[in-house]
Design a protein around this nucleic acid. Structure first.
Lengths: 331, 331
DNA sequence: AACTCGCGTGCACAAACGTGCAAGGAGACC
DNA sequence: GGTCTCCTTGCACGTTTGTGCACGCGAGTT
């Protein structure tokens, strides 16, 4: 049904148009007129279970959009505070404090995926990083049809398949499918072994074309890595980095990375040798994107998040309540 | 919170702010994170039933908004056609053809009430007519907070309480409550007995003030009356009109009314004596409102609807499928 | 203090809903 | 034409959700 291959021009989610029409009608009857599924089944001459499935389809495919408005006199205190203090539009996802880190990630990712549609529109160039957070988000995207948009991979990911993480191509494809956008892959490892190799590669025409795209993004979408947290990011487990690299990062005072580019607590990223071998975009480049959306879950990533904020990388933040609270508390 | 002048001074939807916060959180968890109500109850330290009620509250009070987007490549054929043929933005409400007229009205009214929020905003002057259709709509309005808006009554309604229909003040109050708007009542009968009385009344300062408001509406909201349909509109049953009046209307070729002002099939309303005694706004006045929303259900009202369209009274139409189809079919 | 009224809560039951499963139907390929 | 595969359908069951009811608490009244 859905074609998967790399850069597939033939994008045909080709749901039989009749199904969409039925789904639309069912959605009207259900959400606008409060009929029960039984009643709808009768009107559509089908079974109740089919209606249930139609409605699922309607939600999953973005025909039905559910949004939540806090009344203007009662904006989340946290979001308000983050806005004032850091000039970042925050979306705080409520998650109980005792939730496990995986729960947290799942729930933030789910919420993030549902919010994303508001940021992505036609004629946009969207940069997407590769990592466990983005992978989780990609699993829940709600389709939204756009014209002439492109998804651009921000950093390489090698060819390894790490547990629970998708091939970069799979992740990108999901974004592409969800928004009907063309996908620009970036088939390089996360880190080169030798800076020289990277430089050589960077001179390639195909690479240059991609870098050029990265330079004029409308939206950038990424998580943050957190090398020294208890639960280290995937990048640090996939065998991309050696013990030595790790030690060097520590010595340099690195607190995190965005799309494989490392930074210190103050947001600086100059003079960190590993960055010479990284494949992600320079922060100067990244900051050209007018909208830079960061998805973070778990307090373990707090130092890393702080660094990314200090580096001015973030314009929109989607995170769990605990992290948001911690961010403003000892701010 | 919202002050309702005239009648009931103590209108305080004043929901304890804590409840709204809980409802908001529950809504996030339910609609954004797909938790079950049980799980939410655990997180909120309450019972599942309370969560169910919280969610109801969240929907009823407009914290949660559900909208349905047809994909751009599949717009309702009917809506498309009405747009092309009459330059009217139509919202067609799906209703099975064999539905009874009361069903039809209910379902159209419910859908209409839920769509209305999109039309009404802050700093707007909204004119509302009085009739069975508007009454049905008023029962289902979804609150939306606005500032500095006013609801203006378009036509008088006497003081009678007709079966199933609310006092005009009650109807208006519901609109006012739903949008946090001030309400401008128009305490006159639907029709005067003597044109002279009307003229006298129209010279009153309080009346003039109201007429002035009617003259600069941003939105007008009304149904259409249908004097000769099988199911005559309420106006024709409430004892407002005499046998003679009725006969006169028939002789004049009247097909319907908007806010007590009558018109013929070609949309003309000049030279209809009853209009001299009517309390609704002249069509010239009405047409000054940039947005004029008409809610109609039931094919019996088709001739009346056609007349209103011919009179150029309608910019936005909300109606049931059967009526919409009939409108374009023998168009 | 006693009483009443209104409101919020949880319980228990009924209604509404989601989903695994087996049967049926429409191509695609042989 | 056969048959293999993939998708869709309705059924049956277990889960999830809505709601009438009875209880309990607090505010206002006598």
């Amino acid at each position: 049904m859905t074609w998967t291959p790399q850069d597939d021009p033939d994008r045909s989610p080709e749901v039989p148009a009749g199904k969409t029409r039925d789904a639309l009608r069912a959605a009207h009857l259900y959400y606008m007129q409060d009929l029960t599924m039984d009643a709808i089944a009768a009107e559509l001459h089908t079974s109740r279970s089919s209606v249930s499935r139609l409605l699922s389809h309607a939600r999953a495919s973005g025909l039905v959009e559910i949004s939540i408005h806090s009344p203007l006199d009662l904006p989340s205190r946290l979001e308000q505070e983050i806005l004032e203090r850091h000039e970042i539009a925050a979306h705080v996802v409520p998650v109980p404090d005792q939730a496990s880190d995986v729960d947290r990630l799942d729930r933030v990712a789910l919420s993030a995926a549902r919010i994303l549609g508001r940021f992505i529109d036609s004629n946009q160039l969207v940069g997407v990083a590769w990592g466990s957070t983005m992978s989780a988000v990609s699993r829940h995207l709600v389709p939204k049809s756009t014209h002439n948009s492109e998804i651009v991979q921000l950093n390489g990911a090698g060819n390894l398949r790490t547990t629970g993480i998708l091939y970069a191509s799979e992740l990108l494809r999901r974004f592409g499918d969800a928004f009907g956008a063309k996908v620009q892959q970036f088939p390089v490892p996360a880190f080169f072994d030798d800076p020289a190799t990277k430089e050589a590669f960077w001179r390639e025409r195909s690479t240059k074309r991609l870098l050029e795209l990265q330079g004029r993004l409308d939206v950038a979408l990424f998580g943050v890595g957190s090398p020294f947290a208890e639960v280290a990011s995937r990048v640090y487990q996939g065998g991309y980095l050696e013990r030595d690299d790790y030690a060097a990062l520590s010595a340099d005072g690195v607190v995190g990375d965005v799309a494989t580019v490392f930074y210190r607590a103050d947001g600086s990223s100059e003079g960190i040798p590993l960055n010479e071998r990284a494949t992600g975009p320079d922060f100067g480049v990244l900051r050209r994107a007018p909208r830079r959306i960061c998805v973070v879950s778990g307090r373990a990533k707090l130092p890393s998040l702080r660094g990314a904020i200090a580096a001015g990388l973030i314009t929109d933040l989607i995170t769990d309540e605990g992290t948001a609270r911690a961010l403003v508390e000892h701010g």
